[in-house]
Simulated scan of single mutants.
Amino acid sequence: MHTGLSHTLDFDRDGKTLGHLSIPFSIDRSPYFQVKVPICLVRNGEGPSVLLMAGNHGDEYEGELSLAKLVRRLDPKQIKGRVTILPMANVPAVIAAKRCSPLDGGNLNRAFPGDPSGTPTSRLANFLEMELFPRHDVIFDIHSGGTSMEHLPTALVEHNTDPDRHRRGVELMRTLSMPYGFVADNGQASPTSMGAARRAGAIGVSGEFGGGGTVTVDTMEITARALDALMAALGVVEAPVLAPATGPSAPTRLLSLSRHSQGLDATSRGWFEPAVRLGDSVTSGQLAGWYHDLERLDLAEQALHFLESGIVLSRRLHTMCEAGDCLMQVAEPVDW
């Protein structure tokens, strides 16, 4: 009763089931406390099996709100196969409006494959990779820039050494109808949900759907369209559930982010002023912005320049920075 993760879910039961994943974690206020992770199963006979998750980081809201809507709206009669929904995977982080869990400092998207006898974040990661992910054909993990980053709407898959599975992942990434998409290569031991999905034998699809610790009309529309498009492409639904049907969108523009030199990092404490906008095309050596030292007003601001050419993919929202903070990332347009 003090270890592991428990649930009472029947993954083969037709209909809609609302339940929890329960993780024991003794705290001062409650010696038999359990972290309760909400989960919804919607099943209608045999067919594709897809897991939709958000709240991997607690301050990324587009997916959390969209999947909460989906839990309420999805009728088993609308689907073929099984849809599993985790709207708030890292519940403690969601409640605290933080990227990482306040219970153990755990960053769920850096915790896979986890440990069944570890901290709550580690136990959850282990259950997801070892028990839940293998039950599904496709894992869709919805992210955004959170409270500290602004991010282009960008779909993502991780590189798969199996050519057929890699090709299928890129195909599904394109079906999301996102403006941009890129393939990450974090290696076989990747601690991310996408690495875990690959090891579990599922196809992982992810993306960045907004940022700033908030949602907008545009980011919610993009997220709704992506969810509907993915479920339709898999044959789970025949008609949109979250958003009205729309006409064809522009093809997804593919990008590559694979080198540390594509990032611009702070090397000391200071205040960053950008010179370019998200989505701008930039060249190597171009001015990226200025770094101010408000504690040394006698020093001129420092000009910062991009090391590589490409498209500005993300930028830090907080003006004050510490050494090691990523200020901007530039992705390289590619063809796959």
Rank of each mutant, 00 (worst) to 15 (best):
H2N: 14
H2F: 13
G4P: 08
L5A: 05
H7L: 05
D10M: 02
G15V: 03
H20M: 15
L21D: 08
F25V: 11
R29D: 14
P31C: 06
N44Y: 01
N44V: 02
E64F: 02
V71M: 15
R73Q: 14
M88W: 12
M88G: 13
A96F: 02
A96K: 02
S101I: 01
P102R: 07
D104G: 10
G106S: 08
P113F: 02
G114N: 04
S117F: 02
S117L: 10
P134Y: 09
V138M: 09
E150W: 00
E150T: 00
H151Y: 09
L156G: 07
V157F: 04
T161V: 06
D162Y: 01
D164A: 15
H166F: 15
R168G: 06
M173E: 12
M178Y: 04
F182P: 02
V183F: 00
A189F: 09
P191M: 03
T192Q: 04
S193H: 11
A197R: 06
R198I: 01
G201E: 02
G201Q: 04
S206E: 07
G207Y: 03
E208I: 01
E208Y: 08
G210E: 11
G212H: 01
T216Y: 05
I222C: 09
L230H: 09
V241A: 10
G263S: 12
R269L: 12
F272D: 09
E273S: 13
V282M: 06
G285K: 03
H292F: 07
D298W: 04
V312P: 08
V330Q: 01
A331C: 10
E332T: 13
V334H: 01
